[in-house]
Simulated assay, not measured.
Amino acid sequence: MPTQSTKRGGGGAEGDFQLEDSPGHLLHRAQQRAADMTAQALRAQNLTPRQFAVLMALSQNEGVTQSELVRRTGVDRSTLADMLARLSKRRLVITRRTEQDQRANAVRITAEGQRTLDEAAPKVVDAERRIVELLPVDQREGFLANLKVLADSRR
């Protein structure tokens, strides 16, 4: 429930807006906290949380196109292209033109990429467990369900 406005003098344009009650601000802060915990878990593999997400999507979807990776991970096209170039230099992924559409790139995780992912995944699972454990037990399932609703870009 929003708190009472605590305007100090002058009456600004903010009206009844309270930063500590802002869904956008709170989601951003929660995401920063989760990203920090996940980044710490991935440090040994020299991966970022988004690189981990890309490798996981590739592991679960053999030969997916870059366009499909954008949809599955939420990483924008230009960032994904740069990320794939870096992962390719590390021999974690391979990118090739598709036979069906020579304008499209199919991306595949390499054996080295899969080994890196396999080493990182338990650490990420542990970090995400610790994130969710910050919530009361009876709110965890609903929280995850609500995040899925908010993250669903088709709504």
Score class of each variant (00 low, 15 high):
P136M: 06
S88D: 13
G63Q: 06
V107K: 01
G142D: 12
R140H: 02
K89I: 00
A120V: 06
S78Q: 14
L58T: 10
I94E: 14
T116M: 05
A106E: 10
I109G: 07
L117C: 05
D138T: 15
L80I: 06
Q139L: 15
T79V: 06
P122G: 07
V137A: 15
R72G: 04
R91I: 00
L134T: 08
G113I: 02
L80E: 09
I94A: 04
L69C: 09
R115H: 02
V137L: 13
V132S: 10
Q100C: 04
P136F: 12
V125D: 03
T95Q: 11
A120R: 08
A121C: 01
Q66M: 14
E62I: 00
D126H: 10
S67K: 12
R86I: 05
L134C: 04
D82S: 09
R77G: 11
G63C: 06
D101Q: 07
E133D: 11
K89Q: 10
T79G: 05
T73H: 05
Q139K: 12
V107P: 00
L92Y: 08
R72D: 07
L69W: 08
E119K: 13
R97I: 03
E119Q: 15
T65Q: 02
A57P: 04
P122Q: 05
Q60I: 01
L135I: 05
A104H: 06
V137C: 00
Q66E: 15
A121R: 12
A85M: 09
D138W: 10
A120G: 07
I131Y: 02
A104L: 15
V70M: 09
G142N: 09
T116E: 03
T95W: 00
G63E: 03
S88Y: 04
D76G: 10
E99K: 10
R77I: 03
V132M: 13
A127P: 09
T65G: 02
I131R: 00
A106Y: 09
A57G: 08
E62T: 08
M83D: 15
V124G: 03
L117P: 15
V75T: 15
S67V: 02
R86E: 09
L134A: 08
Q139E: 15
S59P: 02
T116L: 01
S67N: 14
Q139G: 03
D126T: 15
E112A: 12
Q139Y: 13
R115S: 09
Q102K: 13
E141N: 14
G74A: 06
E119A: 13
D76E: 15
A85P: 01
Q114M: 01
R86L: 14
L134Q: 09
R91F: 01
V132R: 15
A111S: 11
A121L: 14
V75L: 12
G74S: 05
Q60Y: 02
I131D: 05
V75N: 06
R108Q: 09
L92R: 11
I109Q: 05
F143T: 06
R72M: 14
D138M: 10
A127W: 11
D82G: 13
V132G: 03
L69Q: 06
L117Q: 06
V70I: 15
R103A: 12
R86Q: 14
K123S: 11
D101L: 05
E128L: 14
V125K: 04
S59C: 05
R108D: 10
T73D: 14
A106C: 04
K89A: 13
V107W: 00
R71A: 15
R90I: 00
P122W: 02
S78C: 01
Q66H: 01
V70F: 05
T95F: 01
G113E: 01
E62C: 00
E133Q: 12
D101P: 03
D118R: 07
A121Q: 12
